[in-house]
Nucleic acid binder design. Structure first.
Lengths: 343, 343
DNA sequence: TTGTAGGCGTTATCAA
DNA sequence: TTGATAACGCCTACAA
């Protein structure tokens, strides 16, 4: 075993004062003579003393721990969100506990642990929380903020991109650029965000008088996009415009279309994604996509948290952040202002 | 304020037993009659009780918290490492505290916080820890494991890729493929890993009789690669083979070379990187690179941690994991087995 | 301004 | 098998 962290008693002993004198020295506006204060600080420096927050957790029933439940960090979008959340929490005086769970099963095993650390709240920047997992988490009776999963019950708040609306706008764009046979690549089962994107896409196409898009299953990975391409592009009446539930899928699909089917994007195939991860803007893919404003979404999550922790009567809330379409080469079939708008 | 988490006293009261009976119920092999146990469990279920680990931290002077100091999660390599570390720690019975710090300054402000949470150890999967930051951290007198930063003092252990050796092998490869005028794109200042890569590269070229490579500054980002390309490729005697301190740099450099200089890779320019992030394997870039075995590196870090926490006399250790070169299109100027080997 | 005393939720020890 | 009690490190009265 290691040497222990120094305690306030150790410092008091060395400084020749009482333990409460040490405590007061570290308390904002505590009444200590500068004489005492100096002796305490000198002793503290010698022992490398830092007050522990652990006893305060017991006294106040507030840990200031916020659990961040993550999984699928292979998606750069979530890396970015995780980083912003962590710094935001630090500024609010909270400490992030990182918990990994990319399946409901792993989450089950994590819940007792979260409870045993007395976390104040849970934030899940992942759009994969199942209703079952939400329900399990709700048993802790602490605020939960979920990304892209509809709010559900008193404890689960949500921050969503306006998935349906953005997907409809993508449908408009693909039609405007000459798409006629549509395809959609799903997200993982149980991702409400991905399903909303499908619904918005499908409905808008329907109201524009187009047949239903051909839908294939996927996950949220590059490899899933490759598999989807192999399914969709070998068809006799293959789609000429495909919307993917996220960028990684779209990038995989583009690469497969080019390499294995000899298709040109956008000339032979229009492709759009969702997230706007960094690679999407690179010239190699130049992917049209929906920007999920990570800054706005994390800020919204932090604001909800602040309110929920300040007020015990707080009820769950739903915040919707609108997405913004970035039109890039993967759907720019006609030169700017060209035939695309005429049709 | 929220309703408090239920305590063992609450459960005891409801079950009509003593608090110690509750405690024993949750202790492996605690002596409780099944009668008592059942009543305790029933009461606990009703109150959603979970034993708190907080008091135990005070009693044992062990928090089981491990701080993960991260920054630059824009690099997918670290997302992957972070995920592996978190799950590994969970399996070892530890809980990850996530701390953000992409500069030494931010780290300074984080250190008191780490101490106040009584973390058992610190792992930094980032290769950017400065010697100063290391020193500050060492004042906590707890084990520190750093990635790609040489071990330094009694408390800081390190897990390194064999940067020098791998860089030398890259030099060999570039020479074999016909490179004659060499360039290197640096990492951020204060990254020992990046400097080692430069040194290995430079030394091998020297011993092969080539002139010194032209070195330009960079960071670890795609945009840095673009800037580096603009500096290197406009030169009269521009390099025909460039090694970049990481993959993101190399990818940015390739894109800029193609788009802004009309160069073909590998015909006009050989490029290699370091990390093997997912994009590097995509056909759009097909980047030759050094695989840092993330699994082996995180496992090594966890093993060091295990030893350090088990034995107070543990001294810092350095583990070197060899990198593996993956040869891809960006350096494959000649068909397999072709002229490249002949020179 | 100072020090003493009680309490937070748990585990370990000891007596019953 | 049980329950009472001390201890962990800190904060907050309260008394000196």
């Amino acid at each position: 075993m290691r040497k222990r962290y120094a305690s306030s008693v150790d410092v008091a002993k060395l400084a020749g004062v009482s333990q409460s004198a040490v405590s007061r020295t570290y308390k904002e506006g505590g009444s200590v003579s500068s004489e005492t204060r100096n002796r305490v600080l000198a002793a503290a420096a010698e022992l490398d003393y830092r007050p522990s927050v652990i006893p305060r957790i017991m006294l106040t029933h507030r840990s200031n721990f916020i659990a961040l439940v993550v999984g699928g960090l292979y998606n750069p979008f979530y890396g970015q969100v995780l980083e912003k959340l962590t710094t935001g929490l630090e500024l609010m005086g909270h400490q992030a506990l990182l918990v990994h769970a990319d399946s409901g099963h792993m989450l089950d095993s994590a819940i007792p642990r979260l409870a045993s650390y007395r976390v104040d709240a849970i934030v899940s920047p992942l759009a994969i929380l199942s209703p079952e997992a939400d329900k399990e988490l709700s048993r802790l009776k602490i605020p939960i903020v979920s990304f892209n999963t509809p709010a559900h019950g008193d404890w689960v708040s949500s921050v969503c991109c306006d998935n349906t609306e953005a997907a409809a706008a993508i449908a408009d764009l693909l039609v405007r650029q000459g798409g006629r046979r549509f395809g959609f690549v799903r997200g993982p089962a149980g991702s409400p965000a991905a399903e909303d994107r499908l619904n918005g896409f499908r409905q808008r196409l329907h109201s524009l008088g187009f047949p239903r898009p051909r839908v294939v299953s996927g996950d949220f990975t590059y490899e899933g996009g490759v598999r989807a391409a192999n399914k969709l592009l070998g068809l006799a009446d293959r789609p000429d415009a495909i919307f993917c539930a996220n960028d990684l899928l779209a990038l995989g699909l583009i690469d497969c279309a080019r390499r294995d089917f000899g298709l040109r994007v956008p000339e032979d195939l229009l492709v759009a994604g969702f997230d706007d991860i960094p690679v999407s803007s690179w010239p190699s893919h130049s992917l049209t996509t929906v920007v999920q404003d990570a800054t706005a979404m994390t800020q919204a999550a932090l604001d909800i948290l602040r309110r929920a922790l300040a007020d015990s009567r707080h009820r769950s809330e739903s915040v919707v952040i609108s997405g913004r379409i970035i039109e890039r080469g993967s759907t720019r079939r006609y030169p700017a202002g060209g035939a695309g708008n005429v049709l």
